[in-house]
Design a protein around this nucleic acid. Structure first.
Lengths: 315, 315
DNA sequence: GTAAAGGATGAAACGCGTTTCAGAACAAGT
DNA sequence: ACTTGTTCTGAAACGCGTTTCATCCTTTAC
């Protein structure tokens, strides 16, 4: 296959000229340009991208850290990142972290090693301070509300979104409201808790459910809900998948939605449409695209993306 | 930050020795080893991975081509690939192809450029012959039935699985059966068609539905189904999401499952459990893990993974 | 006709870690 | 004392594309 010097020899020019031709620089005589192109063709030349990366000191690769690739929530964000990346001719290196800090750190280390030009952290376990230490090596974008001037972020205001859901329930006359969280710690859970307490005061024991991510979690939580001596009559649920599981299990247990339990989910995934679940639509694809634009931008920024309540039949 | 030569100078040894220490080679005097480690520490040295890649001629990166990252079917396979990759200390470069041949080719080109050591094609549009041309540059694994000795493959036997679904329906007394496909062309669609015709003869006009991938497709197809003058009373459906959409839309239109339409899906995604959909379980996570093992193996192989019928309430 | 302004081109340095090869240093065996 | 076998080490080559700098060749301008 050969390298750039073989082409140079064959075309009777220098390696510098070959490089110029291959990268479409001006100032190369037409005949030499042709000779180079022909030699490249004949040698079936292919650039060794690693040499390019080494030489340029950058790679046009962005690292993406996310806990689970198989969950639609993260999948849709990733999909948004991927479409934007494709348009800008970047490649994506993904790390499925399972919320393991060690995994997250290893992915961030790729920034140090110059393996990636920037990193998008879709969701994390690792403390922000540690993340910040890596910002000197390249752009880092977090998909969460963040004021830090040293990092970029793109987010839905969890507080406002949760508040909107609660207000909607209140408007519909619900006084006994519970909710679910993905993880107890974490900023967004805190924001939800705060929004809740402002509206309804401290939540009753057993009205806040944890580990809510998948359909199966929804099923499990519906069981827990049904077993409560005093049940909330409305639930604000992490995402539409959990809501779907909850709704279906409720029905199976002989309850009806929204009579026994009013539900409001998040995301507006097609499953919510199919099941008539009222939900707060989050523009996850857009969020991914925005994150990508930020990660290739030299400047830090913090962008909020909007949400929208979609009324269906579960409230 | 400095490079290996700076360390060498600071530690009073040669770059070769530094490299030996950093890569844990034997035959380095303990005192020199220490001096190197200390210098590396003091300089906050970090390897430039691009130089390593250039030097070694390989990267421990595997490319993954898949049409949509946000669909659970592909997401689960990707997740399987990702967990296996992590265990073997490989990184993943993903390309969301949208079934665009140009995208697929571009991803394969990474193999030529030595950007990745191997490629896993989860699903493709591009002709196999073109794919084969790239096999000289590294391992390629396809997730589909394939006999080609120049490539590896891992697959569920679509023919047998579809046949199992059809036999089950027949056993339950269904004579009027329709089915859905993702794409009309493609080997797996052909296998399905063949299995169908052997069991039921040529399908009635309108009983084969295309473009079935998502919940929304299921909803759409249920509408088409309902509008048929002669309706099949049982459907074999591409995957559980489509089946879910179909089932929910059927109910909404006033039909009942399985009385008016018996359904059998594929994958055994939690959504099937939640909705009581009878399905053919496909070990997609395992399939991904297997694909990864194959792509890092120097030998080609063809591995079949098993499926299993899970009986629930939709038939 | 000559100076100034481009246009065109190659040598060499740069980015940086790995590995081979030749040789030095030292322990063990006779 | 001398051979043999290990253990260590460093110089140099290798993988390979990009870019700067100096230089030579043409035009255009006056």
């Amino acid at each position: 296959m050969g390298n750039i010097h073989d082409i140079a020899r064959m075309a009777g020019v220098s390696a510098a000229t070959v490089s110029r031709v291959l990268n479409n620089y001006p100032y190369v005589k037409e005949e030499k340009r042709k000779a180079v192109l022909e030699a490249a063709e004949r040698l079936r030349y292919v650039k060794n991208i690693n040499a390019v990366h080494l030489s340029l000191g950058k790679t046009k690769i962005i690292g993406v850290i996310l806990p689970f690739v198989s969950h639609p929530y993260f999948g849709v964000i990733l999909s948004g990142i991927a479409s934007a990346a494709e348009k800008s001719d970047y490649k994506l290196m993904i790390t499925q972290s399972n919320y393991q800090v060690s995994q997250e750190i290893e992915a961030l280390d790729m920034l140090k090693r110059k393996q990636v030009d920037g990193v998008i952290i879709v969701s994390r376990e690792c403390p922000v301070d540690i993340v910040k230490d890596y910002s000197e090596y390249g752009q880092i974008v977090l998909c969460e509300a963040l004021a830090d001037p040293g990092l970029s972020s793109v987010f839905v205001d969890q507080y406002k979104a949760f508040q909107a859901a609660l207000s909607f329930l209140k408007k519909k006359g619900h006084q006994k409201v519970g909710y679910t969280l993905l993880r107890t710690e974490g900023k967004s859970s805190l924001a939800r808790k705060q929004a809740y307490e402002e509206q309804y005061g401290k939540a009753k024991r057993g009205w806040v459910f944890n580990q809510a991510l998948t359909i199966d979690d929804g099923i499990r939580i519906a069981g827990e809900w049904a077993g409560l001596s005093e049940r909330p009559e409305a639930m604000v649920i992490t995402n539409d998948f959990v809501a779907a599981g909850f709704l279906l299990q409720c029905r199976r247990l002989g309850f009806s939605v929204p009579e026994d339990a009013a539900l409001i989910g998040f995301d507006n995934h097609p499953i919510a449409g199919a099941l008539g679940i009222t939900t707060i639509e989050l523009p996850l694809h857009l969020l991914g695209e925005t994150a990508f634009q930020q990660v290739i931008s030299p400047n830090n920024s913090h962008e909020e993306v909007p949400f929208r309540l979609i009324e269906r039949d579960s409230v």
